[in-house]
Design a protein around this nucleic acid. Structure first.
Length: 450
DNA sequence: GTTCTAGAAC
DNA sequence: GTTCTAGAAC
């Protein structure tokens, strides 16, 4: 039986920072990037192994089916025989004609597999990684991700070239995972039903993080939800105890700060939806396809308020080129579909769809918003003016500009000022409404007369 | 994007 | 004294 490392005993939804990427050094063949990972959640998390194997294999199968490149391999490395058997039999059952090399199930220690698999492994993760890399690794995770504690999320970190882990083992990146915990003696235990969803999400996040890293792109984890202050604790607990247990480790190896992910935390919140819409609940993602994802605005400024977002990375409307016209037309079609559906449910609703001239969040997003503006989230003048002045550009206008001049450009200062202008009703000629509460009353009257 | 809060407006 | 706004912090 494996001993539980005392340093992570206290963690709740225990981080599973075992997933790592390794590039085989003495690789005479093509460069193969390997992801080594354990059976997630089944040890400390006490997740039933058969169901875990089922979930893990299904996600992996789906991933392999949609990514038939030959430049990577996935390796589950476990020393727990039950877990190995469960994964092995489940995988045989569902793998069909998938290549045996693409997903391998190996008996071994994730931190001691250099010779055999080209991947290093431990189940005393925090301690061993800290010994190999130094305690600045967790600090680095915290620096890159201010709140790295969402259960089901992945937090990739680069390992410096001069660290032992990199030099001797060829490990380039570690993906910290926060996986669901069902062990009632740890904090934040979740029900079996919840854990199943979260385990699927964890595997999905791991695969998606791997995919982004493998392709040289940035992975953007979802950010911590304020409403759930507990989620943060798991990572904190682990990291606190880890750094204590490794006072004599090679602190120096992480001297050089790693590059920070693009921009501040909150401006990036839309990326996860584009990169992996499948990991979000139905209550957040309305629908998605290869080109776009439609989400419910988290702070709807009207009875109905959704965002239509291209999957492809485009920061804002000024980045649009003539060749994006087709994409814009598709976003418009999607928006029209939503509007029709919503109108069927409530014929009283009127809609507009379009873009803010100046976006707060990165990644182009088209608002589809009903014109009642009855919402507790509509709180200030800026909210109001951003949807009811020229600051809001109908998709048709963007389309036309792109068609005629091939680019989009607006005078920032002018539009900034629009946000500060007085509050005017968008439906009648009432001007200079005194304040937001008055506006809300006025809007209610319109709605009731409508 | 939101939250928080000092101080303006009433 | 309470309501509301606006600007900084995140």
């Amino acid at each position: 039986m494996d001993k539980r490392p005392s340093d992570i005993q206290q963690t709740s939804s225990f981080p599973d920072p075992l997933a790592r990427i390794s590039k085989r050094k003495k690789e005479e063949r093509k460069q193969v990037i390997r992801l080594g990972f354990p059976s997630i959640s089944t040890s400390f998390g006490e997740f039933p192994i058969d169901t875990a194997a089922e979930i893990g294999c299904e996600v992996i199968k789906e991933f392999l089916n949609s990514h038939n490149e030959t430049d990577f391999e996935l390796i589950l490395i476990e020393k727990d025989t039950k877990a190995l058997n469960a994964f092995d039999s489940k995988w045989r059952e569902i793998k069909n004609d998938l290549d045996d090399l693409k997903f391998q199930i190996k008996n071994g220690n994730l931190l001691q597999t250099k010779d055999e698999f080209g991947i290093e492994y431990t189940n005393h993760l925090s301690k061993q990684i800290l010994n190999a890399v130094g305690s600045r690794l967790p600090e680095e995770v915290k620096r890159l991700y201010p709140n790295p504690g969402i259960v089901g999320e992945a937090y990739p970190v680069s390992i410096p070239n001069d660290s032992i882990l990199h030099k001797d083992e060829g490990i380039e990146k570690v993906i910290f995972l926060v996986s669901p915990n069902m062990n009632p003696s740890r904090s934040n235990p979740v029900s079996f039903k919840e854990a199943k969803e979260l385990l699927k999400k964890t595997y999905n996040s791991m695969m998606n993080a791997f995919l982004e890293l493998k392709s040289g792109r940035e992975y953007h984890p979802a950010t911590t939800k304020k409403e759930n202050p507990q989620v943060k604790s798991a990572f904190d607990t682990l990291m606190k105890s880890s750094s204590q247990s490794s006072t004599n480790s090679s602190e120096s190896s992480l001297k050089r700060p790693l590059p920070k992910l693009g921009g501040g935390g909150w401006t990036n919140v839309l990326f996860p939806y584009c990169q992996r819409p499948e990991t979000f609940p139905k209550s957040e993602v309305y629908c998605y396809d290869d080109e776009s994802v439609i989400i419910y605005d988290k702070y709807p400024k009207a009875k109905k308020h959704l965002l239509v977002i291209p999957r492809k990375r485009i920061d804002n409307i000024e980045e649009l080129k003539k060749q994006d016209l087709e994409l814009i037309k598709k976003l418009k079609e999607k928006g029209q579909e939503i509007i029709e559906k919503m109108k069927q449910e409530n014929p009283k609703l009127g809609f507009r769809m379009g873009f803010h001239v100046i976006q707060s969040l990165k990644q182009l997003h088209m608002h589809v918003i009903s014109q009642d503006f009855i919402s507790s989230y509509l709180k200030n003048k800026k909210h109001w003016n951003s949807f009811t002045t020229e600051f809001f550009k109908d998709v048709e206008e963007i389309e036309k500009k792109l068609e005629e001049q091939g680019y989009i450009k607006f005078d920032k200062a002018y539009y900034e000022n629009l946000l500060k202008s007085s509050i005017n009703c968008h439906l009648c000629n009432m001007k200079s409404i005194k304040n937001i509460p008055n506006l809300k009353e006025h809007l209610k009257e319109h709605w009731n007369k409508n």
